[in-house]
Design a protein around this nucleic acid. Structure first.
Lengths: 339, 339
DNA sequence: TTGTAAGCGTTATCAT
DNA sequence: ATGATAACGCTTACAA
């Protein structure tokens, strides 16, 4: 369309050289007041905005941070994304979000797109990128890994203790007298799913309860698999007084599945989720859940990248953020009868 | 960290000039098979990726499309974002999402950030940017406006007919015998909120029903205001047999508010939302809602930008995408008694 | 077919 | 204090 205004346009409009324009705009260097004035006037009159691409070329950085998510539209990722966005606000850096779509192929392509665009740093949320590739990336960029535990990359990994979180949820149920607790697990290839299952078993073991494999259903972190879990258990006739889902979305599904069978929550069955998505405050009933500080995680990841950018030598410790329970109305004392 | 591999590295590794490298990589031009071979080998061995910033500088475009949303983490925007992402997949263009945070100031800054980054096109979702600024942007960039109706910019506006959608929802309720229908409106400064209120009134008028202003509560499109609406109406003691919320999120809030008061949906009160967010399939009960094809809207917006980029002269018509009703379980025939 | 060199818009070095 | 000019990494005439 119309050609953009360049620094040359400003220079000729203000009757100075382009270096003078650049100097006035970039702060410290000394420029005579009158010329400075003319430059500023021309800049605002013509609406000049320096070309970030050209600046990036000469500075060797793009003021851009790549963020790899799996699905920008999932409530989980988007809450983290919001935190990342907040973390970079006012820093001059712009996050660029790309999607891996849960597929390693797409992830790899997304990373290439980011590196070609000369991102100055990287935040990788989950995913299945291989250890080798992650190590290479860590060597080239200030990198923060969220939700992945990679041997040798602990210092760039921002994690929550999923084992403890799941154990906490399970203990919560046990303390209320529940003895038959179903667990809707996530996909077995993801570390957080594995850890949460482990936490569930840990709490059971602590309480001296036997582990019944029929009480574990492997879902896929989406709502529909929560419904399937309920159908599965009801068909089997295992007896259940509580369900602990490995994430909130599956808990929502389970809730609907129970409703379809006329089973009340929490009267007949108690329900606990994991993540504490914003929406869980408004479900019916509001869902008790293990609170992951998603927003904070995003912000923390952003701040860490920023810090590494500023002081490349420092290796700030990435303390694991604490998990807490958001206790709401979906849990009650274990009923006499088990379904 | 480590310096990136440049075209010069490839040139010297393959013992050719940098133009030969460029030619091999950029397709058509003729390069001797042996040199071509050496170049390709060096490229893959050294893992060379052309610097997109430098290419952008030469080509005068960044292969980047700016997308202004209000809140990347809202289920509404993220579903559209997913569609946009899908629309650009494989096109070579990369969407860059920025947030306006519902504030005109932030929006303006976000747009500046995008233009400085030399985006080749723009998609603007909602927002409050002034008409003048939008016109300027439309003159400089291939632009698609989603959810805004700007005089003189109809040809770049992708809209749904909110008036008809709201009328459809209200008629649905009327046909089932409901006579006291509350409407939870959105913020009165947003056109879609105004249009939906108008559609509600239109359907009422068609049915020869009087408009009772006490039956309209102004919310803010978030869940909490749905709860407030219910509290407000129950306090007032207007009688109600159905509620039509201007978006799903407020409907979720209303659902919870009713639950708190022991009012059943749909037995006591019917509930209809607007947007048909993915989550509405899993609420309790699943929510009847006016379906906005959010994903499709995003994809369509992306495709339109792509088309304008390819053929700048053409002005493809932006046909309004159709709204339909997603009928689920939150609606029932009007009960005898009104609450 | 290939290499040299100009240029994309900017900053930074260097004289002046 | 200011203006040439050489980069930055790449593509693309233009010569050879």
């Amino acid at each position: 369309m119309t050609r953009a205004v360049t620094i040359r346009d400003i220079a000729s409009a203000a009757h100075v050289s382009i270096s003078t324009v650049s100097r006035t705009l970039n702060g410290q260097a000394t420029v005579a007041p009158d010329k400075r004035q003319r430059v500023l006037e021309a800049v605002s009159r013509l609406g000049y905005q320096p070309n970030a691409q050209a600046q990036g070329l000469v500075w060797g950085r793009s003021m851009t941070i790549g963020v790899l998510t799996q699905d920008i539209a999932s409530p989980f990722y988007s809450e983290v994304a919001r935190g990342i966005d907040a973390g970079f606000a006012g820093s001059g850096y712009q996050p660029v979000f790309v999607n891996g779509h849960w597929q390693i192929q797409d992830e790899a392509e997304a990373i290439v797109a980011l590196t070609r665009r000369q991102v100055d740093g990287l935040i990788i949320l989950g995913g299945q990128l291989g250890v080798t590739q992650l190590r290479e990336l860590a060597a080239r960029y200030p990198l923060v890994l969220v939700g992945r535990q990679v041997p040798g990359l602990e210092y760039v990994s921002l994690n929550v203790d999923n084992v403890q979180g799941a154990a906490m949820a399970t203990r919560h149920l046990l303390q209320l007298g529940h003895r038959r607790i179903g667990h809707i697990a996530g996909v077995a290839t993801q570390q957080d799913a594995i850890d949460r299952l482990q936490g569930y078993r840990l709490a059971l073991a602590e309480a001296g309860m036997p582990f019944d494999p029929r009480l574990v259903f492997e879902g896929d972190f989406h709502e529909a698999s929560g419904i399937q879990a309920v159908e599965h258990w009801l068909g089997l006739g295992v007896g259940l007084s509580a369900i602990f889902a490995a994430n909130d979305q599956m808990a929502y599904g389970a809730r609907l599945g129970l409703y379809r069978r006329g089973i009340r929550v929490p009267d007949d069955i108690s329900l606990v989720g994991f993540d504490d998505l914003p929406a869980s405050q408004f479900t019916l009933p509001p869902l008790t859940s293990v609170r992951q500080p998603l927003f904070e995680m995003g912000r923390h990841a952003a701040n860490t990248v920023l810090l590494r950018l500023k002081e490349p030598e420092t290796q700030p410790e990435l303390a694991a953020l604490p998990l807490t329970m958001s206790v709401r109305e979906s849990v009650r004392y274990a009923p006499e009868r088990v379904l």
